[in-house]
Design a protein around this nucleic acid. Structure first.
Lengths: 234, 234
DNA sequence: TCAGAAGGTGTACGTCGTACACCTCAGCCG
DNA sequence: CGGCTGAGGTGTACGACGTACACCTTCTGA
């Protein structure tokens, strides 16, 4: 079965790790199906036994990194917990400079990514934030969560296919499953649609979210300016 | 010279406009050299007479959009001026959904893009912001300026090639030229490096900028939370 | 023993960006 | 008028890329 110099038979995790190493060493452009295959001493099509296509490969690479991010520590209070988590995410990004670009091109939310976002949202909720405020606040963090674009919260109820099921019983089962897996995200979503499951597919008011974050920043700028901010920096 | 059904001979602007229309109509993936050429009734290689390569084409498409953004109106005070400008930028993005992704992949700062950033920075300076604060504030706006990534301010002194000239006289001439073309950006840059031209290539302290923006947001969240923010939204 | 799954192979197709050599005129100069 | 030049358009070709499809091994469990 080896046939090549390899001993063990290769699997998804090894392939993903090799892809991350390849990107670290030679840049993301070196991560082609052919390039990765040859680094693994294998023919390109062999990869498709472990990864369904290139998008899936990239998703998997991102998941590999997400696993490295520290989760918020509820003992520290929401602000420190969130801050530390996001700075940990940033450290990961800085270690893998290709990641920023890859993350920005991802469209699917994988379970690992949703799990990370759920943990972060959970830190706000644990700090006593209302579900609504947590929702807006997560949007405001936007790319700083690390690169998850503002649409990250669109259709948060499904990870794989986009439309919720029509059958009410099936829908309720799905919500229950989501609630068990991603409790914070689900809580936020349900609060946003007022518990009315028929509004699940609606998505967010992006314009509102954008202005919410923008005004938060502008108000912050104003406060600094009026306080005569200048020194003690750098 | 027409040869095809075309009457006029084609030029850069027409090519760029056609590319934007094609992306609007069929998505950014339809914008290949071949696809654009065929929409223009021309052979793919003909495009290279007007555009130096595909990156240049995409840069040009972005420039076309940037030209549509309203410039800040100094009569309104910095806050309104900045707010209106950024919302105008957002309107442009929303009209051309492919633009967000394209902008994120651009690495060169074109004169048009620099001009837009200069105008925005100028609004802060006109509002009495110090150059330093303006610098950090522009970073904090980050992607909301519309998608220009945080590195947008790295090496702001050059648009085309990355390293400043070694010859002091030539360097001074360049700074003078920059100062005439992008007065606000240049002012910020010079303030950041304390007027020491030998530090021009240094780039920013990204970690500082990141934490600056993050803490601004976290402080804003805290204020809203403590004020019992909840209603009157949506 | 033997079926079938899991893993690896080889060939082939269509698409992409673009290098390079070429052709064809318009406008100009002598 | 003849010929030059250069802008604009053409045609062919190459080396990437992702991946469909058919095939061959080898291991496993009933």
């Amino acid at each position: 079965m080896p046939r090549n110099g390899n001993s063990t038979p290769l699997n998804r995790k090894r392939a993903l790790r090799a892809a991350v190493e390849l990107a670290d060493a030679e840049g993301i452009d070196a991560v082609s199906m052919r390039g990765l295959a040859s680094r693994l001493g294998v023919v390109p099509m062999a990869l498709y036994k472990h990864v369904s296509n290139k998008d899936d490969l990239l998703d998997g690479m991102v998941d590999t990194l997400v696993a490295d991010i520290d989760r918020p520590d509820p003992a520290q209070g929401w602000k420190t917990a969130v801050r530390d988590t996001i700075l940990s995410a940033r450290r990961t990004i800085v270690r893998h400079p290709w990641a920023r670009h890859v993350i920005e091109t991802r469209t699917r939310r994988t379970p690992d990514v949703l799990g990370y976002m759920d943990a972060l949202a959970g830190a706000f909720l644990a700090g006593g934030f209302s579900a609504q405020l947590t929702h807006h606040v997560m949007h405001a963090l936007g790319h700083r969560i690390w690169g998850f674009s503002p649409e990250a919260f669109d259709e948060p109820e499904v990870a794989d296919d986009a439309t919720p099921p029509a059958d009410p019983a099936e829908l309720e089962a799905m919500v229950e499953h989501m609630s068990a897996t991603y409790p914070s995200i689900t809580a936020i979503t349900l609060a946003t649609i007022d518990g009315d499951l028929s509004r699940l597919g609606e998505g967010c008011d992006e314009q509102f979210e954008f202005e919410f974050a923008l005004d938060l920043l502008l108000d912050g700028f104003e406060r600094l300016h009026e306080a005569g901010w200048s020194l003690a920096n750098r």
